[in-house]
Simulated scan of single mutants.
Amino acid sequence: MKMKLLTAVASAVMLCTLAPVVLAQNVAIVNGKAVPKSRIEALSQQIARSGRPVTPEMEGQIKDEVIAREIFIQEAQKQGYETTEDFKTQMELARQTLLIRELFTNYQKTNPVTDADIKAEYDKFAASNGGKEYKARHILVEKEDQAKAIIAQLKKGGKFEDIAKKASKDPGSGAKGGDLDWAGAGNYVAEFSAAMTGLAKGKMTETPVKTQFGYHIIRLDDIRDAQLPKFEDVKPQITQQLQQQKMGKYQEELRSKAKVE
């Protein structure tokens, strides 16, 4: 009897000794099931990967979330949702999504867009968008006779902005007195661009300019060197654009190599 008592006492002591160790490895024990701390680390990493910093204030919330998930998982398992065909289908789709994401994430890590690539793309943009910018106004009408009548009215002292507001069928610029703001010549159709760039500063077209939109009276208010955004300001957008292009090319290569029957 004495030996049995000593054995029981020893077992109790051992359990008391192990309890802190078990708790140290787990977040909590929910209905007798241990919830490992690794779940907190996994959820924290997921939050960090989404771009949100894991602050000390969030640690308690993450712990509560992990425990809550275990409670809900146990109930879902108890009700048999884990064995349904719909659940198995959703799990397979999730598995595919995660695998594909890992594939593409690893590709981006091993095939990064370099600073040289970004600078080259910016230089190409600058070359094609450099030169001059023009600040022009226009009045757009449907018929040539209307345009000729407006030109005559302007020559007699009519105010361009007022006539544009009343007569122009271009709703965007008409409401602003025909103002087209600053833009490169390449932003306009060829006929409009040729007529505009042929004007001296402050002058308007003497005859109506016909385009696919109708007949224009154009006035050139000012000319300046093209105002390009600074490299550092557009670097993030260029980086993202090049990453998307590189990823698209990689995906296309995988499709072309695959044997699909």
Rank of each mutant, 00 (worst) to 15 (best):
M1Y: 07
M3L: 10
K4R: 15
K4V: 12
L6K: 15
L6I: 09
A8L: 12
A8W: 06
L18Y: 11
L18R: 05
P20R: 04
V22I: 14
V27F: 03
V30Q: 03
N31R: 15
G32A: 04
A34F: 09
K37T: 09
K37N: 13
A42W: 11
L43S: 05
S44G: 11
G51W: 03
E59P: 09
G60C: 00
V66S: 01
I67K: 05
A68W: 05
F72D: 14
I73E: 14
G80C: 03
Y81L: 14
T83C: 08
T83I: 09
E85Q: 12
T89I: 12
E92H: 15
R95M: 08
L98D: 08
I100R: 13
E102A: 12
E102L: 09
F104E: 15
N106L: 10
Y107M: 08
V113I: 13
V113L: 04
T114C: 12
I118V: 10
I118T: 11
F125W: 09
A127V: 02
A127N: 05
S128E: 10
N129T: 07
N129A: 07
K135L: 12
R137C: 09
H138K: 03
H138G: 01
L140D: 02
E142N: 11
K143E: 10
D145F: 01
A147V: 01
K155D: 13
K159V: 15
F160K: 04
E161Q: 08
E161A: 10
E161W: 02
D162L: 08
I163Q: 03
I163S: 04
A164I: 03
A164E: 01
K165T: 06
K166H: 05
K169T: 12
D170E: 08
P171M: 03
A175G: 06
K176V: 06
K176C: 07
K176H: 08
G178Q: 04
D181N: 10
A183T: 00
A190I: 04
F192P: 00
A194K: 15
M196T: 06
G198F: 01
K203N: 14
K203F: 05
M204I: 11
M204Q: 10
T205N: 00
T207V: 14
G214C: 00
Y215S: 02
Y215C: 02
L220N: 03
D221V: 05
A226D: 11
Q227S: 12
L228Y: 00
P229L: 03
K230P: 00
K230S: 05
F231C: 03
E232V: 05
E232W: 03
D233M: 05
Q237S: 09
I238G: 04
T239P: 02
L242I: 07
Q245W: 07
G248E: 13
Y250C: 06
A258R: 12
V260W: 11
V260H: 06
